[in-house]
Design a binder for these strands. Structure first.
Lengths: 224, 224
DNA sequence: CGTCTATTTGAGCATAGTCAACCGACGTGG
DNA sequence: CCACGTCGGTTGACTATGCTCAAATAGACG
């Protein structure tokens, strides 16, 4: 039995035997959500885990006072809901039509228990989530506005490098970027202008950026 | 066989049977490090996990450019090195004489695999680490200097509430606080002065703060 | 072509950073 | 015992970065 092809492009399923893949397939549900739809509501009980097949999601956190912190953007192959707490700590909304694989968390964890490969993969994913959050923490704590923007652009660039040329597509709005980097939209806009004047990027359109000097961009973005 | 008393005050060991505790005791090493000593070096391979018995540790991250982000302070009962990656993402240094329980990571993970209670506990700890990091991320992204300081004071206050009165002890230096909150020492100092003038705190000495109005402090600190 | 929304730009302001002086605690050595 | 130096912390003056408010512009879409 050959598992669906989409299973393969995700790190979660790397190195699994056919039997393990069959078990996963058995508990895997397909789900498709449209742009702007909410997948996970902050403080709801964590009942599912998801793998993004296609599309883009935004993970965010809202405070009582209405302030918002965007935690991450998730693309094809990313994992959602791999929380170790019983409640989701964040909301997840889609930025455009998104296709997902959905697993009941309890069933998924049971399978993870049975397969050492799957366990290692899941552990690695959890580690990457934390590592990525620590990178962002460093950027917010130590970097100036234009450097934070480089951090985001470099991150997206790395994600999309295989897909095409040096152009990157920014699916999210300026407000989303601002809330991700701990800035205002105006400052984000000025940061774009600054990187443009530094000849690091070209602003093809508001949502399409061309990287002109990736080395310096990465240097400014660097958190190591 | 009664396990050593120190095992009990840590969430990691909650609800374990005597046999599980005996297994843990068998692989547990005691370690004592003095103030300023480094326990973990950034980018070294993750070979051990630790539980703090007494003392205080600081978890930090250094970049090539010399900038530093303090990630957390760890006190009695906290866990160190519960990374899911093969390398430590951070350094850990002690702020004062510190006593630790040390486990070989591989052996520890093997025991975790065998005990569902221990597994649940370890998972919860991982979740708390991420939750705490997300709180800090929110504070750095969305809060002003004096609010960030409230965030730290409230956090330490909650930690120490059982121990004594409303006084809290700040073991770390102003520079450590600054690098934790993404500020400079001067701004931290002014933030202290501001909270004092707001009558939220009393500065008994540079490293001893008395909370005068915990409700407002918590309100300013709140990330929810 | 007009309307709506997202984004950019500008002017002024507030917050935090920089640089420098100062203060107080502590320890050393005369 | 006191003068001196060091270190960590505070305070002040000035600067720069980013925020606020407002206006202009650019697309998207009917």
């Amino acid at each position: 039995m050959k598992p669906p092809e989409t299973f393969f492009h995700s790190r979660l399923f790397r190195g699994l035997g056919n039997e393990e893949l069959a078990d996963l397939t058995a508990i895997c549900q397909r789900r498709r959500i449209s742009a702007g739809e909410q997948l996970i509501k902050q403080h709801s009980t964590a009942q599912n885990v998801y793998v993004v097949v296609s599309g883009t999601l935004m993970i965010e956190r809202l405070s009582r006072s209405g302030r918002r912190q965007v935690i991450a953007f998730a693309y094809s192959g990313d994992y959602i809901g791999f929380t170790n707490t019983e409640e989701y700590e964040y909301s997840v909304v889609s930025l455009r039509e998104t296709e997902l694989q959905s697993f009941v968390r309890r069933e998924f964890l049971a399978l993870v228990d049975q397969s050492s490969t799957l366990k290692a993969n899941a552990r690695q994913i959890g580690g990457n989530v934390l590592a990525q959050t620590l990178d962002q923490l460093f950027a917010l704590g130590q970097k100036k506005a234009h450097e934070r923007l480089c951090f985001l652009l470099a991150q997206i660039g790395r994600r999309q490098c295989g897909t095409q040329n040096a152009d990157i597509e920014l699916i999210m709005s300026r407000q989303d970027i601002a809330d991700y980097l701990g800035l205002t939209i105006e400052t984000v806009s000025r940061a774009f202008a600054r990187l443009k004047s530094m000849k690091l990027i070209e602003i093809v359109s508001a949502h399409r950026i061309r990287i002109l000097d990736n080395a310096i961009l990465e240097e400014l973005a660097s958190v190591h």
